[in-house]
Simulated assay, not measured.
Amino acid sequence: MDKEDYQLDMNNIPAHIAFIMDGNGRWAKKRMMPRTFGHNEGTKTIRKVALEANRLGVKAMTVYAFSTENFARPEEEVQFIFKLPKKFFESYLKELIENNVQICMIGHLDKAPKATRDIINSAIEQTKNNTGLKLCFAFIYGGRDEIVHSTKQIVQDVQEGKISINDITEDYFNSTLMSANLPDVDLMIRTSGEQRLSNFMLWQLAYAEFIFTPVYWPDFDEKELHKSIWLYQNRERRYGGLK
């Protein structure tokens, strides 16, 4: 089926789609290429999927670019990934700006090399007034780490008398998360056939619909995005209740 064959309800587009971009290394291995080649190709997928999501009216798109656990990968691969933001934004930032896309990030950018920090912060600054899709990079990010980080902040707020224990609600907790400025995740897509969350947005995915596709991330395209949204639209979301 072509993407046009998936008849999307434009009144039911997910506000926030989160991606676990899996399969870059295996995609490259099938082509007798190094894993870094797959990561490089994966950045091209971010660009085309983001532009199409923006066109469809998706409000936010978060991509799991580098987890807190990814430091355990070979040093050469880690250093290559840290260089990808520079190549990505040098190649596509102008186009993203022209399409009103806003760049944001969650995670611990302070743990990245200075050159990586500078290029990401520059992209955030240049797009801060854009009002289209929020393209959010989860970079040096972990879901459990984020929850611990928020818990520490809340404890400090209580100790300093800014709030009382009774003020701690789900909404308040949500306001302390790195993703506080993003809508709740409606749809989470993981590529490459793996079926786990890998410590990704554990709080934000509470009522998201999950789609696990066998397609490797470098092969994920506009057609696959349409298919995933179509599948999402054909599910019944109950939020714990009955309909």
Rank of each mutant, 00 (worst) to 15 (best):
R47C: 08
R73G: 05
L177N: 03
W230G: 11
S179G: 02
I20F: 10
G193V: 08
V148K: 14
K59P: 07
S91M: 15
W27C: 06
A28E: 05
S164R: 06
G142R: 15
V49G: 07
C104L: 02
L225W: 13
E170D: 14
S228W: 11
L205Y: 07
A18H: 10
T68A: 15
L51M: 13
E95D: 15
D22T: 09
E125I: 06
E222I: 14
L8S: 09
L135V: 03
N130T: 03
T127S: 11
P85M: 05
T116L: 11
D2H: 04
K134S: 01
N11Q: 07
E52C: 03
G23M: 09
G240M: 10
Q102F: 01
L133E: 02
C136S: 12
K29E: 15
V58M: 11
Y232G: 10
K87T: 15
S198K: 02
V63I: 15
I124S: 02
Y207P: 05
F66I: 07
K152I: 09
I147M: 13
Q159V: 00
K227T: 10
L197G: 15
M105A: 04
D118P: 14
W217R: 09
D2P: 00
D167M: 04
G132I: 14
L96V: 06
T191A: 06
N130C: 06
D167P: 02
